[in-house]
Nucleic acid binder design. Structure first.
Lengths: 189, 189, 189, 189
DNA sequence: GATGAATGAGAGTTCATTCAT
DNA sequence: TATGAATGAACTCTCATTCAT
């Protein structure tokens, strides 16, 4: 299961994401994935033990990528306003710049039948610890960290669904949202 | 495709929801659904034209149920604080009381391959209009209605994922959340 | 199994013929036939014991119709030339005027799996006897009656396949064919 | 859909022909065909895209075989009497020596629902050209080539239906038929 | 006489997976 | 490492047929 050709592994990963998004988990067959990746079906089994583990592996990689991106985006920041701006903007930027990847993660994580043994996303845990740390430092109001998390990351998701044509309007919504969350979660200056 | 036996239709609907939640959309086969509903596979096709339209029909029914429930919960309310409380509490109550149904809707709506022609949920539109009306009446702060919507309904979803054992903790989180949103979206009293 | 509504029986018969011609025997399902006839599937079983016997019954009716038509067309004729003209012309006329019915018979009779117990077409036997009688009367050359039969009825079939647009050309072919067969089967005048 | 094992392809072809003859097109299921060929159902789909194209492909192969056989049988002949003898005898011999194959072609070609896009039989066209050539050389009487074709090939078909027990009687009929057609289509010597 | 509802059986097709090459 | 060929199991869906109304 160790591989020579990392480019082939990458092609398979992209194929999985694209096919899942286009056809749903039901329609994402090894045959379609292999065709899209330009390899034979048997080759897929050189890089992955079976279909389930393939999906899980790729999901975890994608989720890690998302949270690591956000952790990086806040590195060194100490001001609450900047932190929230960095998180929401970063989340939004990731969403738009890696649309497929992001949607794949969303779709996967909302399916209990798939997620039920995928709590192992390291950088998600790291992000939770960061939030906790910032709260310990009294950067946020003294709310439960879960609620802080929800307030920061859930509302912005809706912008992913928007018509990507109206870029300007999306930007307006985004900055308004940042302002709302800042006011809600931070102490007045 | 016309029916007499509404109880059979109901059994099929429940079976669909349960099987989808247990096995995901990929694993939800007609055979499993029929077995769970206690009818023959062929009978499923008396009540639904095909699998895709079956899933869509049931999804729309469930989504309508959710939003109608919330519309009812706010009927007659005129105070911003009460409205937000009713919406968030109602959402939470619906989530816990109709857990399967709710999770089915969530899972379905995060799958683009399925949703792509399901924008036809009437009472979702009605809810948006209500939000707009309240905002026209200056009950909410003058934010975009989309952001209002996101703030109210997205954070509370996270509570659905919580361990349902700690009822008390969930309640704490809920009331804190209501308070946060009220402060964020309403004018100070 | 005796019926009131002969018009319904007729509608079913026509539906069978049309559906078989359009979809082949493989695609001719009771459901399609019933829909085309404007009755319920169950009603078909009031008029026919089962699918196989339905097809056989209708086939025999159609075949009888064809041969009876030809027997009538030669009634009273005593001259060889006229007889052959009447048979070939009659066959051709039947073919074009009852195209569906004729093609149904052709298709059915070339399928051994269906015909294997349908040798019971009375007027086909009568036609063979007529040919035998005419030969006994030395109207035809002293060939085997089977060959006489083949010569008269098989070549003309090909005209059924022709482009029905070129009516004139078909007519030309027909009259030439009649002439050929007359010369081949009759004594020179 | 590319193959290595031509013997397997051949086994499938034979299975198709046999099952179609025994059960008709309606009864010829992939499952029966696969069982008869000694392969799994899925294997059939390695050699053929789907059932319809499988039947069509095999039909065309068989029809080509028939007409090529007859073209070969007349190669080098220049005398009208010999040509007609070769064609009718050849047709009859092919019919008896490749009975299954022949009946399969007959049954298939009389089913409009199947044939509707199978006019692509190359050697059938070649045979028509040959007939035309012979007629241009004044070997046949100046009849339409379609009628010549009908006269030569249609009557002999009937012998395929005869009880194959009476070999002697069949031979009698055959030679008589050849004589009839020769007289009809050729100039008197 | 007529039908809507129901179903077991089976249709064609695709699945995830294996293995010899 | 990579793959074409192979397959048992499972898929969605339709079949011919029955029966209570």
């Amino acid at each position: 299961m160790r591989h020579k050709d990392d480019e082939k592994a990458q092609r398979i990963k992209e194929a999985v994401i694209e096919v899942v998004l286009e056809e749903g988990f039901g329609g994402a067959s090894i045959s379609k994935i292999a065709k899209r990746a330009g390899v034979s079906q048997a080759t897929v089994y050189i890089y992955h033990e079976n279909k389930e583990s393939m999906l899980r592996t790729i999901y975890i990689e994608c989720a890690e990528e998302l949270w690591e991106y956000l952790i990086l985006a806040t590195q060194g920041l100490r001001d609450g306003g900047h932190i929230i701006e960095a998180l929401i903007c970063g989340y939004y930027r990731f969403m738009t710049e890696h649309q497929k990847l992001f949607r794949f993660v969303e779709q996967f994580s909302s399916c209990p039948a798939l997620t039920h043994n995928c709590s192992e996303i390291a950088s998600y845990g790291k992000m939770m610890s960061l939030l906790q740390k910032w709260q310990d430092e009294a950067i946020f109001k003294p709310y439960h960290v879960n609620n802080i998390f929800s307030m920061i990351f859930n509302p912005v998701k809706m912008l992913a669904a928007e018509d990507p044509a109206c870029q300007t309007e999306s930007d307006d919504l985004l900055w308004e949202l940042i302002h709302i969350i800042q006011t809600a979660v931070l102490f007045a200056p």
